Amino acid sequence: MTESPATRPPAGRYGPEPTERSVRRGRAGLVAAGVVGVALVVWIGLNLAGQPVSWKDVGFHVEDSRTIEVTFEVTKPKESTVTCTVTALSESYAQVGVRIVEVGPADSATRRVTATVQTTELAVSGTVEPCELVEEPSAP
């Protein structure tokens, strides 16, 4: 059995052959893009970790064609007040109801809240996003 020579396209068919310099430049570009990507992920992670408010959907219950109850948990500093936007969605993911809910100071950092949202048509899902700290007026 004889070995066949390495198969390569004819010279020049797909542009000039890469030089050692162009190969190094390509690798340097990939390394630089990787470093920038890692830095971006770290920056986003640090910003999210510094957020004092977090929330998550727990569930929803469709009361009727004009009402849905949305249950969610919000974690915040105990002494702070936050506002959460609760949204009702139709089968086509259109917003059919919205309510701003204020969650005030409490004995625990995490609170479970159920909000009733009036809708313009049948909602098939409910969600909360975002919850934001209410700015406290500064003392004179």
Score class of each variant (00 low, 15 high):
99 R>H: 04
120 T>F: 02
125 S>M: 11
97 G>C: 08
35 V>Y: 07
131 C>I: 01
58 V>E: 15
75 T>D: 10
121 E>H: 03
9 P>S: 14
107 D>Y: 06
126 G>Q: 05
138 S>V: 10
64 D>G: 10
80 S>V: 07
34 G>L: 07
48 L>E: 15
138 S>L: 13
53 V>R: 08
8 R>P: 00
25 R>T: 08
88 A>I: 11
117 V>D: 13
87 T>E: 01
72 F>W: 10
3 E>L: 10
26 G>H: 05
37 G>K: 06
64 D>V: 02
83 T>R: 13
46 L>A: 14
114 T>S: 06
43 W>S: 15
107 D>E: 11
30 L>D: 00
126 G>L: 01
44 I>K: 12
14 Y>Q: 09
69 E>N: 07
140 P>E: 13
50 G>D: 14
70 V>E: 03
110 T>H: 12
20 E>A: 05
19 T>D: 10
83 T>I: 03
20 E>I: 02
96 V>D: 03
49 A>D: 13
29 G>P: 06
84 C>F: 05
38 V>Y: 08
25 R>Y: 02
66 R>W: 00
8 R>I: 11
87 T>M: 01
116 T>L: 00
136 E>F: 02
30 L>I: 08
20 E>D: 04
129 E>V: 01
131 C>K: 00
45 G>H: 09
60 F>N: 13
109 A>W: 07
64 D>T: 04
140 P>W: 12
135 E>Q: 14
73 E>D: 08
134 V>E: 06
131 C>H: 05
94 A>E: 13
12 G>H: 11
119 T>Y: 07
2 T>P: 11
15 G>K: 02
5 P>C: 07
64 D>C: 04
90 S>M: 14
67 T>K: 11
20 E>T: 06
88 A>W: 02
102 E>I: 00
60 F>I: 04
84 C>G: 13
133 L>S: 14
27 R>W: 02
140 P>F: 08
68 I>A: 09
130 P>S: 09
130 P>M: 03
118 Q>F: 13
26 G>R: 07
83 T>C: 05
123 A>D: 05
85 T>Y: 09
128 V>R: 04
66 R>K: 14
92 S>A: 15
85 T>I: 03
76 K>C: 00
139 A>G: 15
125 S>F: 04
121 E>I: 05
78 K>G: 03
130 P>A: 08
114 T>P: 03
80 S>R: 10
48 L>Q: 12
61 H>V: 08
103 V>A: 04
100 I>P: 04
108 S>A: 12
4 S>C: 13
102 E>L: 04
44 I>F: 12
96 V>S: 00
105 P>C: 06
6 A>E: 12
135 E>P: 10
133 L>Q: 08
108 S>T: 12
71 T>E: 09
107 D>G: 08
54 S>C: 07
105 P>Q: 12
104 G>Y: 06
84 C>P: 07
75 T>C: 15
82 V>Y: 04
